[in-house]
Amino acid sequence: MQDSWRLITTWGTTPEFNMGLDEALLLEGDQPTLRLYTWSPDALSLGWFQKTSEVSGIGSASSTVRRLTGGGAIHHEGELTFSLCCPQTHPLYRGPVGPSYARIHGAVILALRQIGLPARLRGEGSLTSDDPASGMCFHHSTPLDVEWNGRKGVGSAQRRKGGRVLHHGSIKVTSTPLEGNIATFEQATESHTAQSFAPLLLDHMRQHLGLRLVPGVPSPEERERAAELGARYTTDEWVHQR
């Protein structure tokens, strides 16, 4: 039996909206939701526990936010961002954190392979893209990260709160000066943008994860809550809290 998820797709939405809606879904979402989105303007997002002093590129993007999820900083430009939000007891997220990444990344890897990228989980060892001093997510790898050609190409992080989970993922289409030497779509056999890759990713989320995706939009209440929560994401008080 397939598992029904709401699918919300928004292209070129603001950092405040993107982060505010994800938080609204984490705090109050009443149905499992998968989001696909891109950012306009581009933004640098810090991991929840990162100190601003640990990120060498701070101030280099059009906007800066602090995510609720952990891990390193990401420059959200030239990428397809996805988020999943559901109860922690959902089969995708039940149990230890590690296997939940393996499940989601399994679907992502199949979609990347479809466009000719030799994507796989990193496993043991290190990547040529590793450069932890930058503070960037794509310059720090773990065994469960997705890589191709020896470089990290997907950034992921989770927040678990009140029995619910928010999973963020960033798939790099192109690199940016803040994220040099990482895996992108430039090595793919097919040319793709974030928008043109999205249907492939969704196909594999359906097939590999058994999700029944029902296109939808945020409810008026979710929009209102997202606006209220999102407004603080770009404030100095929020960004520089650590």
Partner: peptide, 26 residues
Amino acid sequence: DLPEVGRLVEAGETFGEIESVKAVSD
């Protein structure tokens, strides 16, 4: 991240956060 001494908490309220390599949990 643990709270400061003196903070008042309600049952069920978040009093801190813990981060593993791949997740932040309340």
